[in-house]
């Protein structure tokens, strides 16, 4: 009797699932995954960025059959992976500067094109500082030229390598070393936001996606989709930083999950400037659940509580939920676009 079971226990929520056909399991579940960044690196305990990088690069290695090269911006990811005389990388990898990874990658892609090696693919990666701030000009140029590069931003919402200062991706009210919880408006200012995925979409590049380290299968699928395309592609991965966010090292994935489940961080993908899919919130939670487990927001829950600020953050999450259609009963982005 052939059986089509309706349920796979952990389905695709967990990394692996012995009940699934091996071909359907995640790359991270494979004992022979490439471990593009291997043991011995100096990332902090529970680092979300190194996890994100391994998830992304292993998936990309699988998609390209290992035929790829990587450009890396200066930042935590670079510093903790390649202090002389040791490197943790297991793929061809180049670190040049903080603000130029997109352009370095463009040059790599151009060289490969000139050499007629279209089978070798280029991935560039940077933290949020190297992406949304100092590398932004180069990134936009790479997008505009539609160079054949997958650019991955590991967004930990600040300059963690230099001691946790704010970046253009630091959220409002978050405490950093230069936006301390002092004065009447503690933490980072409420600005207009600089959400590079939307800016990337404005370039109408072939593919833009957001993801978190809390949803491996989604992330891997997006990498696979991206590597199946050519031209400029952008992947923005939320990677909690236990050090900078003041979260427990074991909570890295939980924090990322809450970022998604509260609507603080919308997870979606877009092609040629149009949103094509949204990851719906599975178990909605108020933003306080997300904020409370991070010491960078501790000043909102001290004496006096700053419910006014929590409400403003909640409003931002609600805005995301509305804008991207993150809840199940929400007609969502499609209607907005028609």
């Amino acid at each position: 009797m052939t059986v089509e079971p309706k349920l796979y226990q952990v389905d695709t929520f967990a990394v692996g699932n012995r009940l699934l056909d091996p071909a359907q399991r995640s790359e991270q579940a494979r004992a022979d995954r490439s471990n593009a960044i291997t043991s011995g690196h100096r990332a902090c305990q529970g680092c979300g960025e190194v996890l994100g990088a391994r998830y992304v690069l292993d998936a990309a290695m699988r998609a390209t059959g290992g035929n790829m090269v990587a450009a890396n911006a200066t930042g935590c990811l670079e510093v903790f992976s390649t202090p002389y005389p040791e490197t943790s990388w297991q793929l061809p990898w180049l670190h040049s500067l903080f603000g130029n990874a997109p352009a370095v990658a463009s040059g790599m892609a151009a060289a490969l094109r000139a050499q007629g090696r279209s089978d070798t693919r280029v991935v560039a990666q940077a933290g949020d500082g190297g992406t949304v701030d100092i590398g932004f000009g180069c990134l936009s140029g790479m997008f505009e030229r539609n160079d054949d590069v997958l650019f991955v931003c590991y967004d930990n919402e600040g300059y963690m390598n230099t001691g946790v200062q704010r970046s253009g991706a630091t959220p409002p009210a978050a405490r950093t070393a230069n936006t301390k919880a002092l004065g009447p408006e503690p933490g980072n200012a409420f600005g207009q936001g600089k959400f590079v995925p939307l800016i990337a979409m404005a370039h109408e590049i072939p593919y833009v996606a957001t993801a978190t380290v809390a949803d491996l299968r989604d992330l891997e699928a997006k990498v696979e989709t991206a590597m199946g395309m050519s031209g400029a592609r952008y992947l923005h991965v939320l990677v909690p930083c236990p050090l900078g966010w003041g979260s427990a090292s074991e909570d890295t994935i939980k924090v990322a999950r809450l970022a998604r489940e509260t609507g603080i961080f919308p997870v979606f993908e877009a092609e040629r400037g149009r949103i094509t899919a949204v990851s719906k919130i599975r178990r909605w939670q108020p933003v306080e659940e997300y904020l409370r487990i991070q010491r960078r927001y501790a000043h909102l829950f001290g004496e006096p509580r700053r419910d006014d600020i929590v409400a403003r953050i909640q409003a931002q999450a609600d805005h995301n939920i509305d804008r991207f259609g993150l809840l199940d009963d929400d007609p969502g982005y499609e209607q907005d676009q028609e």
């Binding site: 463009s106 040059g107 151009a110 180069c138």
Partner: peptide, 23 residues
């Protein structure tokens, strides 16, 4: 391949990437 880059930093950076790829 002629890359019309967005700045001189981009120009030299692209050259770095290209040269490191062996071109």
């Amino acid at each position: 391949e002629y890359l019309m880059v967005e700045s001189e930093l981009g120009a030299m950076s692209a050259c770095i990437g290209s040269s490191a790829m062996g071109s």
